[in-house]
């Protein structure tokens, strides 16, 4: 299990144990964390699973695919640390990961 902290825009924290193999998006959705809608269920087609990954974790969360890059390019409130959480696979190496949620996903 990897411990992942999801911080809502209003500061509410959700500390969850997420099974390796799931995505960071699935960890949130299966636990009903508000603010990650994931309309497309992880198909990289909707950009409603947008999160900010703390810089310290940038290397371990992997590279963005061209598809993810171009979806994010048009999402709202995008920052250099923005990721689509359905494109980050959870592994033991992500134990302790902290992600922040944007104000809205649409």
């Amino acid at each position: 299990m990897a411990k992942i902290t999801y911080i809502e825009f209003d500061g509410t924290e959700h500390v969850l144990d997420v099974k390796p193999g799931l995505t960071v998006m699935e960890g949130a959705v299966k636990n009903n964390v508000p603010g990650i809608d994931a309309d497309c269920g992880g198909a990289c087609a909707c950009a409603t699973c947008h999160v900010y990954v703390d810089d310290a974790w940038a290397d371990r969360t992997g590279e963005k695919s061209a598809m993810e890059e171009s979806m994010l390019d048009f999402a709202e409130n995008v920052e250099p640390t923005s990721r689509l959480s359905c494109q980050i696979k959870v592994s033991d190496a992500l134990d302790g990961l902290v992600v922040r949620l944007p104000e809205n996903q649409h």
């Binding site: 171009s70 979806m71 390019d73 048009f74 999402a75």
Partner: peptide, 10 residues
């Protein structure tokens, strides 16, 4: 063509 989709939707 994600840019066309995303910008088109907006």
């Amino acid at each position: 063509a994600p840019p066309e989709f995303m910008a088109g939707k907006q």
